[in-house]
C-alpha cells in the first residue's frame, strides 16, 4: 500500500483499459447482457428499496404504518422527526456523538501520525517489532476484549464518561491508522526535511510545519475512514456508556428500537434512523471515490 491508495482507482490506471474487448465467442451476446442486466437490476432493487421504504415510512403516521407497508402517507409527517429529535432524545444522542468524535478523531489522527512518522522515517532497535505489534490489533475482534475492557475502564473510573470512550476509540483506531499513515510517510521526499534542518529547524518543527502539511491527503483519507468507523461504532458504547443521558447515536437508536415494541411510535423510530444516517450519507456522496479506495486499500495488500 502506498499514497496511491487514496487516489481514485481510475486515475492510476492506464488509459488503454477503457476501450474494452469485443467478440467473445460462445453464447449470444444479447442473451448474456439481458441476463446480466436483469441480475444487476434485481440487486440494485434489493439494495435501494429498503431505503426508499424507510424514507417513506419515516413520514407516515403510525396508523398508516400499521395498516400496510405499501400505503403512501396522506400528508407528510415532519412531526415524526421532531418527536425523534426531542422525545426520543435523538438530538441529545447526536450531540453526544459529535462531542466524542471531536475528541476521538483529533486524537486518533494526531497520535497515529506521530507514531507513524517515527516508525516510517527513523531507524531504532525494536522498530519492526513495534510496527507489527500495532498491526496485530487488526486481527483481533473487539468483542473478545469486551469483558476485561469493561472492568479496566470501570477501575480507571472512566465508565460512562466521554473521556473514557474517547480514549478507547483512539486505542482501537490505532492499528489501521498507523498502518496506513506509516506507508504514507514513507512516500514523502526526504529532501524537504533535510533542507529544513539546514535552516536550523528542530525535529518538532519539521514534523508539525513540514511533514504534517505534506501528509494532508493521507490524514484526510484516515479522517473519513475513522469518522465512519467511529460514527457507526455500536459495541463499545453499548458496554462502556451505561449512562442514559450520555448514550451515543447508534446505541440510543438500538434501545429506541428495542423499546419500540412496547411504546409503538414507529414513525419517530424511522425518522430517528434517517437522522442517524444523514451524516454518513453526506460523507459518502462527497467522498465516494476516496472512500472506496481507502476502505479496500488495507484488504488489497493484506
Amino acid at each position: 500500500m502506498s499514497a496511491q491508495a487514496i487516489q481514485p482507482i481510475e486515475e492510476i490506471l492506464p488509459t488503454t483499459r477503457r476501450e474494452g474487448i469485443q467478440g467473445w465467442t460462445g453464447g449470444s451476446d444479447r442473451a448474456f447482457s439481458t441476463v446480466a442486466q436483469l441480475m444487476l437490476a434485481f440487486w440494485a432493487f434489493v439494495v435501494i428499496f429498503p431505503f426508499v421504504w424507510m424514507i417513506v415510512t419515516s413520514v407516515k403516521t403510525d396508523p398508516e404504518i400499521l395498516s400496510s407497508p405499501w400505503k403512501l402517507p396522506a400528508a407528510i409527517q415532519w412531526d415524526n422527526f421532531e418527536r425523534a429529535w426531542t422525545q426520543a432524545r435523538i438530538g441529545r444522542f447526536f450531540l453526544n456523538t459529535l462531542l466524542v468524535l471531536a475528541g476521538s478523531l483529533t486524537g486518533t489522527l494526531l497520535v497515529s501520525a506521530m507514531a507513524a512518522y517515527v516508525l516510517a522515517r527513523f531507524e531504532f532497535p525494536g522498530r519492526q517489532v513495534l510496527f507489527y505489534a500495532f498491526i496485530a490489533g487488526l486481527m483481533f475482534p473487539v468483542f473478545l476484549a469486551l469483558v476485561p475492557l469493561y472492568f479496566l475502564v470501570r477501575d480507571l473510573h472512566l465508565l460512562g464518561t466521554y473521556q473514557g470512550l474517547i480514549l478507547v476509540y483512539i486505542a482501537y483506531s490505532l492499528p489501521f491508522t498507523i498502518f496506513f499513515l506509516t506507508a504514507f510517510f514513507k512516500t514523502l521526499p526526504n529532501e524537504l526535511g533535510e533542507a529544513a534542518i539546514l535552516d536550523g529547524a528542530s525535529q518538532y518543527q519539521i514534523f508539525f510545519q513540514v511533514m504534517l502539511p505534506l501528509a494532508k491527503p493521507g490524514l484526510i483519507a484516515m479522517g473519513i475512514f475513522n469518522f465512519l468507523g467511529q460514527w457507526n461504532q455500536f459495541l463499545l458504547p453499548l458496554v462502556l456508556m451505561p449512562d442514559e443521558n450520555r448514550y451515543l447515536l447508534s446505541q440510543g437508536l438500538y434501545f429506541l428500537a428495542v423499546q419500540q415494541g412496547y411504546q409503538n411510535d414507529y414513525g419517530a423510530l424511522f425518522a430517528a434512523m434517517m437522522i442517524t444516517m444523514i451524516p454518513t450519507l453526506i460523507v459518502y456522496v462527497l467522498f465516494q471515490r476516496r472512500l472506496e479506495s481507502g476502505l479496500t486499500a488495507g484488504a488489497l495488500k493484506g
Binding site: 506521530m114 527513523f122 513495534l130 490505532l174 525535529q203
Partner: peptide, 23 residues
C-alpha cells in the same frame, strides 16, 4: 523525538487493547 512521539500511541494501545486481551 522518537520517545515522546511513540509514547502516546504505545500507552493507549498497551492499556486499552493489549492488556484486556491478556487479561
Amino acid at each position: 523525538l522518537i520517545i515522546p512521539f511513540l509514547l502516546p500511541a504505545a500507552l493507549l494501545y498497551g492499556v486499552f487493547v493489549v492488556w484486556p486481551y491478556a487479561q
